[in-house]
Design a binder for these strands. Structure first.
Lengths: 167, 167
DNA sequence: CGTGAAACCGTCGCCCC
DNA sequence: GGGGCGACGGTTTCACG
């Protein structure tokens, strides 16, 4: 239980702001059932403790001209910590790479990439990714379509656990 | 070029709101260099045309008690459209599954999952995912750590393209 | 797209439990 | 400790040029 103290109102605030991060504070306070000032104080605390890391507009990548989404599975030659870190630093510097997660198993990293078109991605793939130091192999898979794309976490499960805990 | 009309100011608005979705409209208008009313009109238009799909608070999953993040690679027995759709409907109904992308290649779907602990995930894995109709095989990889986790798209690339187009 | 005005909201201090 | 009330300043959002 990592959460120092999260009462039902805090969880509701997080769930509401995850669903609509631009909601006004009065609307939020109405939804969670308290008045605006304490609601704002809670939001500030959640931001300061890092439970809320930020707010982002969710843009339509395809409409914006990013037609291609790709997952790249990367295996390295060496898994020594310095080499892992070196690859992560590289990945952070590539704009096409939106996410880079280190995994267990044979695949060392999975990269989620967004690109305007295939040729831009393939230039990146051949000139940057596979050409990088220590990269042993890269397998790529194009995203055909997105069936689900929800940000964040399922608060429903938190609520169920909290309810179960106070029997 | 899917964007009907996106001038540099619209792109700036999108980039700014992707970076901070809770910025006030006056702050946004200041950053993009116009006054507040037209700025708000542009934001509304971007929302109505679906270029902005929504706003979300970015919550700290680990601090919130979701210690486990997993990628699941799913292969189906049948890739007929009805069967693909049926699986997608299933996936949309599982709270632990945050993203479900259909891929090309041998892996039919990749699922990004968030779970409070391993046992919760493994219950889901055995009782729901691998037990589902038409699922041939599931390979899972635990996320050890996140090197990069940026939402949305790299606007830098859009800007570079726009600049290159008007030589 | 900018200006002005009105309504609303974010925010603070204070009082209450 | 946290929640509510009231007030000020800033913001949102009109109508209009």
């Amino acid at each position: 239980m990592p959460s120092l103290k999260l009462d039902p109102i805090d969880r509701k605030i997080l769930a509401e702001l995850q669903g609509d991060g631009r909601m006004t504070n009065v609307e939020l306070s109405r939804r969670v059932g308290i008045s605006a000032p304490p609601c704002l104080r809670r939001v500030r605390t959640l931001e300061e403790t890092g439970l809320i890391k930020g707010y982002h507009a969710d843009v339509n990548a395809r409409e914006l001209g990013f037609e291609v989404q790709v997952f790249a599975m990367v295996s390295l030659k060496s898994q020594a910590e310095v080499d892992l870190s070196a690859f992560e630093t590289l990945a952070r510097g590539w704009p096409l790479v939106r996410e880079c997660h280190m995994l267990n198993g044979e695949i060392d990293f999975i990269l989620k990439c967004a690109s305007p078109d295939l040729s831009t991605f393939q230039t990146f793939l051949t000139e940057d990714l596979t050409a990088a130091d220590n990269v042993a192999s890269v397998k790529t898979s194009l995203v055909i379509r997105n069936a689900k794309d929800e940000p964040g976490v399922p608060f429903e499960i938190l609520e169920a656990r909290a309810a179960a805990e106070e029997e």
